[in-house]
Simulated assay, not measured.
Amino acid sequence: MEVTLRQENKNDFESVFQLIEKAFEKEEHSDHKEQFLVERLRKSDAFIPELSVVAESDNRIVGHILFTRLKIINDKDVFNCLSLAPVSVLPDFQRKGIGSKLILYGHEVAKKLGYKFVILLGHQDYYPRFGYELCEKYNIKMPFDVPSENCMVFALIKDGLHNVSGNVIYPLGFFE
């Protein structure tokens, strides 16, 4: 199966909405509203068009990933970074490496755009294979109560997390 990755465009929005809805339909740890999150984030200042990526197979969108702007703030510094949320693959195409391709491609684009690291809330058994580590290792704190094993960070460049610590500040688009 050949998969092509490209930047999402406005003509993809409805297909991506339906894809995300189907991808999370049976997810136990989901509020099943990820498709609405993506819609809100597209309209926010956090949106970066180059980091909204679709995966196509046979001219059909089968996957999507979104990275958006995020900040970490402590007493001395503000760190600009990215949030990865969500990664979505149609159920019939899951476990075929599409999610991995989207993540690795997104990392490369993010590096080219000058970002140093990525934060996410995700499955503790999936993301470490890409090098994601627990946020608590860097004293990075989420603004809401979530299990620490699901809060992860990834340095896109060598020393990308040097001296990084503080509180994650999500943009308004993340919340209804």
Score class of each variant (00 low, 15 high):
residue 119 I to M: 14
residue 72 I to S: 07
residue 67 F to V: 02
residue 165 S to Y: 07
residue 15 S to R: 01
residue 22 K to G: 10
residue 22 K to H: 13
residue 175 F to I: 05
residue 68 T to I: 05
residue 78 V to M: 03
residue 75 D to G: 10
residue 163 N to M: 12
residue 119 I to A: 12
residue 145 D to P: 03
residue 86 P to L: 13
residue 81 C to T: 09
residue 94 Q to Y: 11
residue 120 L to C: 10
residue 49 P to S: 01
residue 47 F to I: 00
residue 127 Y to W: 08
residue 19 L to D: 00
residue 144 F to M: 09
residue 91 P to A: 06
residue 105 Y to K: 08
residue 26 K to V: 07
residue 85 A to I: 03
residue 63 G to N: 05
residue 17 F to H: 04
residue 148 S to V: 06
residue 144 F to R: 04
residue 114 G to R: 01
residue 118 V to L: 12
residue 149 E to W: 09
residue 69 R to V: 02
residue 88 S to F: 11
residue 167 N to T: 09
residue 77 D to M: 10
residue 6 R to V: 02
residue 139 N to R: 11
residue 23 A to S: 14
residue 57 S to V: 02
residue 26 K to G: 05
residue 31 D to W: 08
residue 125 D to Y: 15
residue 111 K to E: 04
residue 122 G to P: 09
residue 151 C to W: 05
residue 146 V to I: 15
residue 65 I to T: 11
residue 134 L to V: 12
residue 148 S to T: 09
residue 56 E to H: 09
residue 99 G to V: 10
residue 156 L to E: 07
residue 23 A to G: 08
residue 158 K to E: 14
residue 124 Q to E: 15
residue 141 K to N: 14
residue 36 F to H: 15
residue 15 S to N: 04
residue 61 I to A: 04
residue 29 H to A: 13
residue 75 D to H: 14
residue 91 P to D: 03
residue 109 V to A: 01
residue 3 V to M: 00
residue 158 K to G: 02
residue 1 M to S: 00
residue 137 K to A: 13
residue 87 V to R: 03
residue 149 E to V: 11
residue 161 L to E: 02
residue 35 Q to D: 14
residue 144 F to N: 04
residue 58 D to E: 14
residue 174 F to N: 03
